[in-house]
Simulated assay, not measured.
Amino acid sequence: MGGDKQGRYVKPDLSLLGTEHVKRYRESGGEVGHIWNGVTALLLTTIGRKSGALRIQPMIYGRDGSDFIVIASKGGSPNHPAWYLNLTSNPSAEIQVKNKIMKVSARVAKGLERERLWDLMTSLWPNYDQYQERTDREIPVVVLTPATF
């Protein structure tokens, strides 16, 4: 998986992060925050599996047809990120891409699809390969499919 990208960790600019990233993205309709460190970012809203509260997380994303692809890396932590656990509990979520808000359904890519999408995402953000090296868990690749009405 992505063998030619090994060792290409690039330290990101962390001046726009977390709640400040969410706030500026929302206020500007994505004019600020959609492009983050040279990649595209969306806002993912999940329902807390314990609290039931809405949780908003800025996420790097890629596209696969009409689907949005995100990676549950948590920087290579041994534990899955809370947003991912929320989606495993309730796969219904919402994303904001620039000024467009849409309902999505989440699923975890497996097998050959996961490999293909992992390669797609590491071509956008090579640091994912290093995050995978930091942990024993297989980092999930999450497919967010927009709802059709």
Rank of each mutant, 00 (worst) to 15 (best):
Arg26Phe: 04
Leu120Gln: 06
Arg134His: 15
Gly65Pro: 15
Leu87Ala: 01
Ile60Glu: 04
Ile56Gly: 00
Val10Phe: 10
Ile69Val: 04
Gly111Cys: 09
Glu113Gln: 08
Thr19Ser: 13
Leu117Met: 05
Ser105Gln: 12
Glu133Asn: 14
Gly3Val: 07
Thr122Cys: 02
Ile69Ala: 02
Ile56Pro: 03
Val104Thr: 01
Pro81Ala: 07
Gln132Trp: 09
Gln6Ala: 10
Asn37Ile: 06
Pro12Leu: 01
Gly3Glu: 11
Arg49Ile: 08
Thr88Ile: 14
Leu87Val: 04
Lys50Asn: 11
Leu124Ser: 02
Lys100Asn: 14
Gly62Thr: 00
Trp36Thr: 14
Asp136Gly: 15
Thr148Glu: 14
Pro12Asn: 09
Pro81Cys: 08
Lys23Asp: 02
Asp119Pro: 00
Pro81Tyr: 09
Gly62Leu: 12
Leu85Val: 13
Tyr128Phe: 13
Asp67His: 15
Gly111Val: 11
Ser123His: 08
Asn79Gly: 08
Leu112Arg: 12
Ser51Gln: 06
Glu31Trp: 06
Leu87Ile: 05
Pro126Ser: 06
His21Phe: 11
Leu120Ala: 04
Pro91His: 12
Tyr61His: 14
Thr19Gln: 15
Asn79Ile: 06
Trp36Ile: 14
Leu14Phe: 07
Arg137His: 09
Leu17Cys: 10
Val97Phe: 09
Tyr9Lys: 08
Val104Ser: 02
Thr46Cys: 03
Asn99Lys: 12
Ala41Val: 13
Trp125Cys: 01
Gly2Asp: 12
Asn127Gly: 03
Arg116Gln: 06
Ser77Ala: 08
Gly7Pro: 04
Ser66Glu: 14
Arg63Gln: 15
Pro78Glu: 03
Lys100Gly: 00
Asn86Asp: 11
Lys74Trp: 06
Ala82Cys: 09
Gly52Gln: 12
Ala82Lys: 11
Pro91Glu: 02
Lys110Ile: 14
Arg49Phe: 09
Asp13Ser: 09
Asp13Leu: 08
Met59His: 02
Leu17Tyr: 13
Phe149Gln: 13
Ala93Asn: 03
Thr88Met: 07
Gly2Ile: 06
Thr88Gly: 02
His34Trp: 09
Ile47Glu: 04
Leu17His: 12
Leu120Arg: 07
Gln6Thr: 10
Ser92Ile: 10
Pro146Val: 05
Leu144Pro: 01
Ile47Val: 12
Ile60Pro: 04
Leu144Ser: 02
Phe149His: 11
Val70Phe: 01
Tyr84Leu: 09
Thr122Asp: 00
Glu31Val: 14
Leu54Lys: 10
Leu16Trp: 09
Gly38Glu: 11
Val104Arg: 01
Ala53Arg: 11
Gly7His: 07
Gly76Leu: 03
Leu112Trp: 10
Pro126Lys: 00
Leu16His: 07
Val143Trp: 15
Ser92Met: 10
Leu16Gln: 03
Ile139Ser: 04
Lys23Val: 00
His80Met: 04
Ile47Asn: 03
Leu117Asn: 00
Asp13Ala: 09
Trp118Leu: 02
His80Glu: 05
Lys5Arg: 13
Ser92Cys: 10
Ser28Leu: 12
Lys5Leu: 14
Asn86Leu: 00
Ser123Ala: 13
Asp129Tyr: 12
Ser66Cys: 13
Gly111Asp: 12
Ser73Gly: 11
Ala147Ile: 04
Gly3Thr: 11
Val39Ile: 13
Ile71Arg: 02
Met1Gly: 13
Leu14Asn: 07
Val141Asp: 03
Asp64Gln: 14
Gly2Glu: 08
Arg114Asp: 02
Leu16Ile: 10
Val32Gln: 13
Met1Leu: 01
Arg63Leu: 15
Ile139His: 01
Lys110Gln: 12
